[in-house]
Simulated assay, not measured.
Amino acid sequence: MSDARELAGKTVLVTGASSGLGRHFALMLARKGARVAAAARRTSLLEDLAREADALGCTIVPVAMDVASVDAIKAGVAEVEAALGPIHILVNNAGIAVQAKALSTTEAEFDRVFSTNVRGAFFVAQVCGQRMIERGIAGRVVNIASVAGLVPMPQLGVYGMSKAAVVQMTRALAIEWARHGISVNAICPGYVATDLNAAFFGSEAGQKITAALPKRRIAQPHDLDGTLLLLASPEAGAVINGAIISVDDGYMHS
């Protein structure tokens, strides 16, 4: 995106914004001029994020939302609209991972991953998409999938299955909503360093994974900024639709 001011006046909902990529995306988009609603279950962390944004002269409104509950999604979206106006951009980021081999994955773990990563992502998109269509908004939906949804990754079988579903959901919604001017795309990150996995990548096992990557490095959250801004932009985002973009330093081709 050539001009960061293009997001001025836009309302953005970022799910899973209490930590990790979601938190980073929320603050980055707010600093680009958007009015950001940061949604998650852990509202105390969202309030900390809102205070940080305020100190920078940005707008972030914390919104309680458990994406595993459709009622909570609807209530959260209504709260966003009441506080910031209609949603123009959805960053559908909320997700969880279970690292386990297939034979040791429990039923509870499987259900928890799919409830958040698939069911939650779908109904957040559905609720926001319906509001965009009703209001005639040529919106942008950016689903945060994973390279694990495109190629197998060690001990991430169930997580990868859930993200493969997000990839297919992206393609389906892109076709269904194109006539309304809504673009639906997905970003598929590879290994990205966050506060949640810092200890692992500092360990011997994590260092082995890093050494095996094509560029021998773990990506940083800001490495995804350009792709997200491109897909969220009013101009480029209008003609990019149904794209599944790997941001993985070449991992899936190694």
Score class of each variant (00 low, 15 high):
M1D: 13
A4Q: 12
A4V: 15
A4I: 13
R5L: 08
R5P: 08
K10Y: 13
V14P: 02
T15S: 10
S19A: 15
G20T: 09
G22V: 01
R23I: 06
L27I: 07
L29N: 03
G33A: 06
A40C: 03
L46D: 05
E47C: 06
C58D: 14
I60Q: 08
P62C: 01
M65R: 01
M65L: 05
D66H: 00
D66P: 01
A68M: 05
S69Y: 02
S69V: 07
V70I: 13
I73R: 00
I73P: 00
K74A: 13
G76L: 05
G76M: 12
V77S: 00
E81F: 10
A83M: 04
G85I: 06
P86H: 02
P86C: 06
I89S: 04
V91T: 04
A94K: 01
K101R: 13
A102R: 09
A102H: 07
L103E: 14
T105R: 09
T106G: 10
T106R: 10
E109P: 00
F110R: 01
R112L: 10
A121Y: 04
F122M: 10
V124R: 13
Q126E: 10
C128W: 00
G129P: 00
M132W: 02
I133G: 04
I133L: 12
I133V: 14
E134W: 08
E134V: 04
R135F: 11
R140M: 04
I144D: 06
A145G: 11
V147Q: 11
V147Y: 11
G149A: 04
V151L: 12
M153V: 15
G157M: 09
G157C: 07
K163R: 06
K163D: 14
A164Y: 07
A165C: 04
Q168R: 15
A172K: 10
I175E: 13
E176I: 08
W177Q: 12
G181S: 09
V184M: 11
N185T: 09
I187K: 06
C188Y: 07
V192T: 15
T194H: 05
D195Y: 00
F200L: 01
G202I: 02
E204K: 09
E204Q: 14
G206Y: 01
G206Q: 06
Q207K: 14
K208P: 12
K208D: 13
R216Q: 14
R216E: 13
R216I: 05
R217G: 09
R217H: 05
I218G: 05
Q220W: 09
P221Y: 07
D223I: 07
G226Y: 03
G226K: 11
L230F: 13
P234E: 11
P234F: 09
E235C: 09
E235I: 12
G237W: 02
G237L: 09
A238C: 12
V239E: 13
A243F: 03
I245D: 06
D248H: 07
Y251K: 04
